[in-house]
Design a protein around this nucleic acid. Structure first.
Lengths: 247, 247
DNA sequence: TCAATAGTGTCTATTAGACAATATACT
DNA sequence: AGTATATTGTCTAATAGACACTATTGA
């Protein structure tokens, strides 16, 4: 019994015959200047490289000598492009097929990452070939491969999760204040939120820990917070009231 | 500008040097006899095949000659194992690394599928090598590869989505009734739901279309429904009241 | 003391769930 | 009629959001 299966893969029991290309791509988001931005690189203008000069999500081939797991590989791409080591990183999905890369059947593992914006006083550690682009503007460009589709999926995932999780907190450097966090939510959601309801929601979710007071440019100083557990966001019991909800 | 990247992949610009193995696995769920079940196959007991005789999720190598996309490949695996062509199929995630397959660095694309149970009067189209196993029982077995981890993730995803989407409707053959649908929710959630609240929720979500009346073994006949749009589940404005919610 | 921002209090419309009542099918 | 199930109605507790108010900082 249970031998029939091998007949479905004649002469290919170890998948050696023809293997797809395997890559990892990362959609890295931050919020700067009240705008949701994504990191784009430019494809090399070199013979044999597809989509020369086109903007693309950072990524590349899995290196089976260096990368122990897919997650490792995504972390490596992230570090190469942003210098950041421990931000929020989540799998987005995979895109694979015969046509998406002119070099052959390829499958990419897409991730999405949230990072705090580079502080004004420090140099942006992103390499010169990379640039932060407003997310909507990036979507309206013609990106390499099927990266428009991947970026659209990443944006959709982010916007969906912002409605009912603490994800946007990963877009801020610690310590941050509740008004700062609210601003981030508003930027990603594209609409304003009520201050009182927002605070109740965040504090009731119990994912923040108080640090010292933080004074801004003017006005009353605010309570500083850090994320209690950076391994995952928390889920709110209900989403924010969506504008499109029926009356 | 923008040429630096190739230095990160010396002599590997087309990823030809060493490519990972690429597979697709599918966690196929159904509800039978008030139990959430998953379809398992047995690994072939053949020289060179890893994990001989072990239970595993259905899956196998991507065939770049037959499969146009990853989605195609998942559909093919599904059809081979269940005979079903158009159920609910969603990407779950990917697992890849040097150690998960003794044959070499491999990456699998995991999907999860929901199918209605085979009708009592028809023969189960699943091949003899496959068997339906209660999901919890399957998890407690030692599955091939990292399939315990994948199955656990699939179960977690399913149970999470049941709280706030119409997903379980894809576990029923059409037409189905609201009491039948409620039973499915209860089986997957592992707790009972209030009849009135359940109906309001389902009907307000407006994803069902009435068909004729359906009579059961006894008692009043029920309204039959079908899913209005099978391409995706709908999201409820709030999750079910979770038992663990604070008072 | 004023401007600016942070933080709190109160009220209300909405609604999910509890539970009771009613409707319909079959014997 | 009686039993079993489907369907509807009513009530209530919980709460998200609206909005007004108070608190604290620095100039």
């Amino acid at each position: 019994m249970a031998v029939r299966k091998s007949a479905a893969n004649p002469g290919n029991s170890a998948g050696v015959t023809e293997r797809p290309l395997v890559t990892v791509d990362v959609a890295i988001f931050t919020v700067r200047d009240d705008s949701l931005q994504v990191l784009l690189v430019h494809r090399p203008s070199v013979a044999g490289e597809p989509y020369p000069g086109r903007p693309a999500l950072p990524g590349g081939f899995v290196d089976i000598r260096r990368d122990t797991t897919l997650h490792d590989c995504a972390l490596r791409k992230l570090k190469e492009k942003t210098g950041l080591a421990a931000p929020y990183l989540e799998q987005l999905g995979s895109w694979g097929g015969a046509k998406r890369d002119p070099r052959g059947w390829s499958a990419t593992h897409a991730w999405f990452a949230l990072v705090p914006p580079p502080a004004d006083d420090e140099v942006d550690p992103a390499p010169a070939e990379a640039e932060w682009v407003d997310a909507e503007a990036a979507l309206s460009r013609r990106l390499a491969f099927d990266h428009n589709e991947i970026l659209a999926a990443a944006l959709a995932r982010l916007r969906a999760k912002v409605e009912y999780t603490s994800l946007p907190a990963f877009l801020l450097a610690e310590p941050f204040t509740l008004p700062q966090l609210q601003r981030i939510y508003e930027v990603v959601l594209g609409r304003e939120l009520d201050k009182s309801a927002f605070r109740k929601r965040m504090l009731d979710a119990d994912f923040l820990r108080e640090t010292g007071a933080v004074s801004g440019a003017s006005g009353r100083a605010a309570q500083g917070y850090r994320i209690a557990d950076r391994s995952a966001p928390v889920y709110f019991p209900r989403p924010f009231k969506s504008g499109e909800q029926l009356a």
